[in-house]
Each structure stands twice: as structure tokens, then as C-alpha cells.
Amino acid sequence: MPEITIREALKIALNEAMENDEKVFIMGEDIGEYGGAYAVTDGFLKKFGSRRIKDTPISEQAFVGAGIGAAVGGLRPVIELMSISFSLVAFDQIVNMAGNIRYMSGGQISVPMVIRAPTGAGVQLAATHSQSFETWLAEVPGIKVVCPSNSYDALGLMRSAIKDNNPVIFAEPALLYGSKSNIPNEYFEVNLGDANVMKEGDDITIVSYGYGSKVLSDSAKKLESIGIKPELIDLRSLNPIDYQTIIHSIQKTNRLVLVDTARKTGGIMAEISANINEKAGEWLDGPIVRVGSKDVPWPYNKNLEQEVLTDSNNILDTIKVSYGI
């Protein structure tokens, strides 16, 4: 069981796919000569050559659109966006083209493509580079959205994402590239759409994903110290959402807390809250509680940014107040 970083896990998955399938190629801004803004594809150009490791101009619409076209033409592109905030520039291509083309063609066309993009705040990149638009993209029916919180999931999800015959948004928490965890020696995949019960507990179900799942682990220790045993669920996938795992958990705990490190308003947790109310509200002994980052543009200043970003104290405080502990 080697301990590796998420960056290394992604590298392993991409390298493996490139070696095993000639149809897989990677493109994006500065992924070749430069080695990638977060160094995930460092060394790939030398190994695989410029036919398969394609540096693109700074033209998100064109290279995302070209990726879609290449996928429609039978290839399996892995596209890197330098930030999920930049997905805005290519939103028409992602949503209107990748998300709708299969339906509009009556199922004649498929788009086997992965879009990788660092997501989230916490590294002082200010308002334009710190957002979490995986939550917006999760609304589109024709695309899948996943986000790993550890190396095992990064490797397993990426293996599945590249093999999937649909567009997959692969959001990578910018704060976690260097975060280490264990992976097994034997081959494994993580099914797109399966949540992970990170920790079992009887008292309260807490759901998050990506960097939020990391924050949950810290909160759990604090909760345990005051005698509460939380069950922690890492969504791993924002579309589809594994409601079965969440409902199964609240049938045991009867309490649900939803944690997001993205802005609270209009986020994925609002959607989950509404759905759980509709699907399984009768299992809850109290209201569903949401914790999210503050509804402001991301500030640059470190203290301000940390204050906006959801942390384990926010989770703890909210739980204490909501449940009168």
C-alpha cells in the first residue's frame, strides 16, 4: 500500500491510459513543454510526443470544442483547464455542445471526453480563480461530474472517467494536489456515481465532497471529542448523486448535515437538501443543516479568504447550534 499524492495518482491514471489506448490524448494550456500548471503532466511530452500531448493556444472555447469534436470523431481526449473558473469561457461548448449533442442527435453521437480542472479556493488566487463551478455543471443532464478528495479516489475515478463514453468533468481540489494517502498495489476503479462512506457512525450523517471531505475528517475528531459519532460521506460524484448511500445513512442517524467549501447559495448541497426532503424527509428527526462558504467573491487576503472558506470550526459550530448541543 504505497502512500502517494493526488498529483501522483492522476499522473499514474493518465500515464496508464495513454499507454493502453492509442485513442487517448491530452490537450490543454501549457500541459506539454511547461509540464502543466499543477505539474500533473510533467514529463508526458517527452514520453508520448506532440501528437498525443498537445499544447493549445489560450483559447478555451476552441480547444474544449475541438476536444468534443475529436471525441465525436472517435478519440478519447483528456482536456485540462487551468482552473474550473476558466470553464466559464468555454461554457457554451461544455453545456450546449458536449451536454446536448447526444440528445439532439437522438443518440447517434457520443462524447467520450474528460475535462480536468483544478477547483476551489484556499490558495489566495482571488475572485476569478477560486470558484467551484463543478456545482453549476452538475445541473447539466448530459455530462457527469466527479471530484476526488484523496489519492485512491483520484486514481480510481480517473480510470473510470477516461473509459466512460460520456463527457466527464473531473474537478480537482487545488488545495489537495500534494495531499497524500494510501492506494492498494492491485488494480482498481471507482465507479462514477458511487459515494464513499469515509467513516461509519450512528449519530449524525455529514456529507461533503472534494476539499470539503478533507475538512470533514478534522471535524469528525472534534465531534468525537464531545461524544458525537458522525457518519461521513464523500460524494465523489456530483452528477449522478448517490442518494441511496445518503438515505441509507440517515435511516440510521436521522440527522443530516451538508457541507460545501463552495459558496453556500445555489450550490449542490441545496439540491441535495431538497431531494432528501422529498425522498426521505420522514427519516429525519430535525431539519437538514447546510454549511458552506460565505456568499461573497473570493478575497485575496489570506485572513479574509480563510474566513470565507468553510472550515472544521464552522461545521462544529453549526452542528452545535442546530442541534442544541
Binding site: A62, I68, G69, G73, L75, Q93
Partner: peptide
């Protein structure tokens, strides 16, 4: 039906022809 939106799709199809 998004004006100009088809342009990179076509470039990508051409890329697949070049690649293969």
C-alpha cells in the same frame, strides 16, 4: 444553433482525421 459554436467541433473532427 449557437452562432459559431460549431466551428471548434469541426476542428476537432478534423483533428481526429489527422490523428488517425
Amino acid at each position: 444553433a449557437i452562432v459559431g459554436g460549431q466551428l471548434p467541433l469541426a476542428a476537432g473532427l478534423a483533428l481526429s482525421q489527422q490523428y488517425d
